[in-house]
């Protein structure tokens, strides 16, 4: 039943993206990150939907929106393991589990105040050490994903 309901929501989208499997406590962080408040087209934001895998989950459906790789990377940092579905002409064009990429360019801010990246107009680069830890290419300092600030 729940699965059908979800399918209906996705199917109802002509062109756009669906972000699924969002932990309920991260839903509004993502809303804020994507600046959905200013978005002019149809947006559906749902929370506490039943999920077999997660118990409860959040879901966002955005009409006319297709994410760039940089945006997807940001989503992955804030909220690893979400699912992204791309809809074109009512059909699912792509479905992917968004995981933390091995390399993040200009997504994350280094927490080390004496890192060169915080003192020079330049792009930051971080490498994934494990699923919870990123390492700055320049100063070598490691940061936990939960403490990360986006650039």
């Amino acid at each position: 039943m729940e699965q059908n309901k979800e399918n209906m929501m996705v199917a109802a989208l002509e062109n756009g993206s669906v972000i699924d499997h969002i932990p309920t406590n991260k839903l509004f962080t993502i809303v804020q990150l994507l600046d959905l408040e200013k978005f002019k087209e149809e947006v559906v934001i749902a929370n506490n939907l039943k999920s077999q895998v997660m118990g409860k989950k959040g879901l966002i459906k955005i009409s006319g929106k297709f994410f760039s790789e940089a945006e997807i990377s940001k989503l992955a940092v804030v909220c690893p393991n979400i699912r992204l579905t791309v809809i074109k002409d009512y059909e699912v064009k792509e479905k992917r589990e968004v995981t933390l990429p091995e390399k993040l360019t200009n997504i994350v801010k280094c927490a080390n105040p004496v890192c060169i990246t915080n003192n020079e107009p330049m792009k930051t680069v971080f490498y994934r050490k494990d699923m919870e830890t990123l390492k700055c290419r320049y100063c070598g300092k490691e940061q936990k994903l939960k403490d990360i600030k986006l650039k």
């Binding site: 080390n112 004496v114 890192c115 060169i116 990246t117 003192n119 020079e120 330049m122 700055c136 290419r137 320049y138 100063c139 070598g140 300092k141």
Partner: peptide, 10 residues
């Protein structure tokens, strides 16, 4: 020589 970390790599 630089006081900032990562300056040489950059």
């Amino acid at each position: 020589r630089h006081k900032l970390e990562g300056a040489a790599l950059y």
